[in-house]
Computed example of a mutant assay.
Amino acid sequence: MEKLLVQSSSHSYGIYIGKQLRYRIYDFLEKEYSSIFIVSDERVASLYLDDCLSNFPADKVYQSVVPSGEQSKSFEAYYQLQTDALTHGLDRNSLIIALGGGVVGDLAGFAAATYMRGIDYIQMPTTILAHDSSVGGKVAINHEIGKNLIGSFYPPKAVIYDVDTLSSLTDKEVRSGYAELVKEALINKQSFFEKLMDTDIYHVRPEQLTAHLLQGVKIKADIVEADERESGMRKYLNLGHTLAHALEAELGYGTLAHGEAVAIGLLFALHVSEQTYNVQLPYHALYEWLEKNRYPMDQSYVNRMDTLIAKMKTDKKAVNHKIQMVLLKGIGKPAIKTFSDSEIKHYLQSFKERLIV
């Protein structure tokens, strides 16, 4: 088992990565809780919920299962969790466990942040994608106008990452998770990026996947420790996300997996970066890797330029209604730049033409 320690402004918490950890939850609790409330989604619950429930006495553990998919990051699901917590009699000494991918982690974390003004919670990610979202304490739900617009900074008490749960992922979920690893590599170092570009993500060895996850988590943890509330360098973790969030909102949450949208957003960010800074970046290497690993690359969405631009301007990173993007001056050299609507429209058009070729 690997352990990392993250220092937040309120407390430090451990990230534990290893096999069979879902049977050892008690080992990672720092105190006794009056009750345990496990939140999961339908698919993950059918596979792993009973394993987690077995850690606790039946009279002090409760569960709530939400529908699988991005649609559960909603007011309705959030309200239902609050109702369930109240019905089960959770108090301020209760613990919420988020068992699932990024959707469950964000939803349950936001419920924990706001229930009785905040109770403890633990992240138990079950997807590759959630290696990113489970670390750093950003929790949120979506609004139909935009993604993650209602939320908080609320660090977990621990992140328990049982890598055995990754064996049940679909190809779509594998694609989604590896896009976030590529993002972390691009803002960090060339060697990690090259390692990922040599990876067939559908036939990766378990020990190789664990090594990739550990490196991605370390990158995320280092940035979060330096800038917990995204006042500076933490914004670099949004590379690719400006267009990605707009695509998710425009196409309907769940049409593209989050990481599939991020993959398109990363390619767009490289395209804009090359033209903005007159540098050569691995656009073609990334494009070929995305094609080889069957990422959806249909460019028809770019026809909706005006609505995409409107969605990009509602992104949390927008400043004074201007679009702000994370770009690269080189691998490991991120920068932030603000653009006008006309500039983004120009880049979207040239990006579409580049995709067709």
Rank of each mutant, 00 (worst) to 15 (best):
G330V: 02
K218S: 15
H271D: 08
A335R: 12
P156E: 11
L355E: 06
I187D: 07
K333L: 05
S34F: 02
G240N: 07
K316S: 06
H284E: 12
A211E: 12
D164K: 03
H143R: 11
F339T: 15
G18I: 03
N188R: 07
G151P: 02
L348N: 07
T114K: 02
A158F: 01
I96Y: 09
S34L: 06
L53Q: 13
A221M: 07
T165D: 00
K337V: 12
Q20W: 01
L129G: 09
D341M: 06
M116N: 10
G118R: 04
I145H: 11
V135M: 06
S167R: 07
P334G: 05
I128V: 15
E184M: 12
N93I: 09
K172S: 10
F339D: 13
L270G: 12
L129I: 09
A269P: 07
E228D: 11
L209W: 04
G254A: 02
V279A: 10
L169Q: 06
E353K: 10
E32P: 09
Y253R: 08
I128L: 04
V319I: 14
G89R: 06
H11Y: 01
V279Y: 01
K19Q: 11
I344A: 04
G330A: 10
A335F: 05
P155M: 09
D315C: 02
S191V: 10
V204T: 14
E76Y: 11
I219F: 08
K31E: 11
R354W: 04
A111K: 03
K60A: 13
L169W: 00
I128Y: 05
R117Q: 10
D132M: 03
V103Q: 09
T338Y: 00
D222S: 14
D162M: 02
L29W: 02
G216E: 04
Y154H: 09
R175C: 01
E353A: 11
I122M: 11
I17S: 06
G137W: 04
T199A: 03
G232F: 08
G100A: 06
S46C: 06
I219L: 09
G69E: 12
I344R: 07
R117A: 08
N293D: 03
Y295L: 04
F351C: 07
E180Y: 00
S134K: 08
L49D: 09
S94T: 11
Y23S: 14
R24L: 03
K317M: 10
Y26D: 15
M305K: 13
K31D: 08
